[in-house]
Design a protein around this nucleic acid. Structure first.
Lengths: 271, 271
DNA sequence: GTCACACGGTGACCTGAGTCACGCGCGCCG
DNA sequence: CGGCGCGCGTGACTCAGGTCACCGTGTGAC
């Protein structure tokens, strides 16, 4: 294991002052290629894999044998918080099933700016695009917590689809959802101003939080991260949030933002 | 970013002065719903469909029987230049195989701005996303020339995949490509200025033209359309093109732009 | 021909928001 | 407990580029 002390607050919190510096290489070296497999699929011991597979709805109806044969194609890997699971432009034809932890998918510009596409939590999957075309990775995927993934190599894809044909449809559905969400982002960038976009990010995050935990709250995201999600600068995100607080649309309690979902929704609506 | 906007297609040439007016309804009413089928698949007479199917690489290796059974699921329709094949937010679970003509995929904002996502020509397909999720259409698809399409209903999708399993992989591959291209667009919008984006559009169009016809030329696109592709205003697109002409990176012969691919490429490179 | 659009070019203006700079408070660690 | 690093808040400046306004020109209809 090459990486010892897991990288500071990840780079999630990578500070704006650091943005232009090269990040410490010893962390960035921790790539999928070098990540040690925790369990190889061929192991006699692949119960851990099977157990984790069952968490995926698309595999929940498989027989024990099918699960086992699927597990035979998968490798379990762990990534520490802050490490790159995938780097943009890398070659690589492995798809990942995220079984534990949280990752962010984001783009980095040469000038050191960052645009976050998404935050994913288990169970979900990513990296499937390189399975079908041979193109290099189109974005970075960075662990924002310690993470466990199951890796499926492109060579095994058709075998996997044989075992569970639903997999193909699931992939299509995921990609569709992704296309829709990207179109939405693009629409936002093209048609709406920064204020609008920040509000939308807040609304989305708070709504998700509400659905998951019953509290319409934005927490665990710095203003910088909100900004990367909205495609704007930290300062602008900050100003928008202050303004919304002043208007009473959100409340700020320490470093968390409590959102009045309805108020925010129609604050967005009326342009 | 602002995209100056306006409708559309037949009215691709629509003038900026008209931008905010409602377009003449008799054209816009021409929707997929109302488009008369030219040949229903069930017809005894489905040779025309079969003939057109063969143009698609993914079906070229099918047996005569398979082609016939596939044709049985398809309906041939025509759309006149300027009509909407798909409208954003419509429900609809039909996928289209474009067999003749040219369509543009674009987004319209309520304020009448427009962002073009893509121009497609036969053979290609669109509208497949609604096959798998039940979401409404995420963009407009507008015929920019007279167009022929084959329609496949969602109900027949799995049957079609049965006939040609490759279809599933083709769909995945198409969606992947689309995701990549959308990510590229988003990157452009987030990281690059309007000048850069316009240059990229010119490069792409000219490169495609070069590959198809051996001439690195941009024609058949108004400055307004270039602007919608770049996510900027007509005026800005216009100014960029003038500037590039002044620099000798492109030549303008009447209303066509001849691009020096190499010069433009490294003009873009050196930021 | 000529009339009328549609398209393209360009100047002037103005605002959204990126950027810089700095100060503040909190939480962590020696 | 004192410092220091990190995240947040805000003012000031700047400028890319959207918008408005207007004109010239090519082109297609009749």
């Amino acid at each position: 294991m090459r990486v010892v002390g897991a990288p500071i607050g990840a780079f999630g919190d990578q500070c704006r002052r650091r943005r232009l510096q090269k990040p410490p290489p010893f962390v960035y070296d921790y790539r999928s290629d070098s990540a040690p497999p925790i369990h190889r699929g061929m192991d006699v011991q692949n119960e851990p894999i099977i157990a984790r597979l069952k968490a995926f709805p698309m595999f929940s109806d498989l027989s024990a044998e099918d699960l086992a044969s699927l597990a035979g194609m998968l490798t379990l890997r762990q990534f520490p918080k802050g490490s790159f699971v995938i780097s943009q432009n890398d070659k690589g034809s492995v798809m990942y099933l995220l079984v534990a932890g949280r990752v962010k998918v984001s783009l980095a510009s040469p000038e050191g700016k960052e645009l976050a596409l998404n935050y994913l939590e288990a169970p979900s999957h990513f990296g499937e695009m390189s399975l079908v075309d041979a193109e290099p990775r189109s974005a970075d995927v960075i662990a924002v917590s310690d993470v466990e993934v199951l890796c499926l190599d492109a060579r095994d894809l058709s075998a996997a689809i044989q075992v569970q044909p639903k997999l193909a449809l699931t992939l299509i559905a995921t990609l569709s959802r992704r296309v829709r969400s990207l179109i939405g982002r693009l629409e936002d960038m093209a048609f709406h101003d920064a204020t609008h976009r920040v509000m939308r990010v807040l609304l989305n995050v708070a709504t998700a939080s509400y659905e998951a935990r019953g509290v319409p709250v934005v927490e665990g995201l710095t203003h910088y991260e909100v900004a990367t999600l909205a495609g704007t600068s930290r300062e602008t995100a900050s100003r928008v949030i202050s303004q919304l607080a002043k208007e009473g649309v959100v409340g700020t309690k320490g470093r968390r933002v409590i959102v009045d979902l309805f108020a925010l929704r129609d604050r967005i609506e009326r342009d």
